[in-house]
Amino acid sequence: MEQALYQAAILTFEELGFIFPIERPSDDECENEESTRVSVKFNGSVSGEIVLQVENTILPTIASNMLGTEEPLEDEEILQDVLGELANVICGNTLPSIAGKNEVFRLEPPRKINKLEAGEKPAAIAHLDVEESRADVLLYLN
């Protein structure tokens, strides 16, 4: 499951964000104040959510890469939308590997969250370094 999450996250960062992520040690800390987070909930034969958090130091660069602009993008609405689309694509690409290639899922629109739910344990985490910053993808199953 962790493997599927890493694969989907790396593929998405490379293809959409034109950025090269590297796996971080898996015992690394996830909690980070200076990050932006979104959640994408999914329902189907398995249900749960994917949370993507990306450090604010790198998010404007990723947004600029995705949209093909010269300067990093700072507009909060754009950053939120970019992060939501990344999470949506990671989610869509993770699910077939954990639930089977023919399962149909309903993905909810990405939703901003302020912090990770304390006490809830993710079923898998992908810890990534993107350039000099950190990004984490957490998969929760209901």
């Binding site: 034109f18 950025i19 090269f20 890469n65 093909g68 602009t69």
Partner: peptide, 18 residues
């Protein structure tokens, strides 16, 4: 993974330059 990084950098540069 220099080969892969080279291609990714090229794709980014081209995308930004239309």
């Amino acid at each position: 993974q220099i080969g892969k990084r080279n291609f990714l950098m090229l794709r980014k540069l081209l995308w930004k330059n239309n």
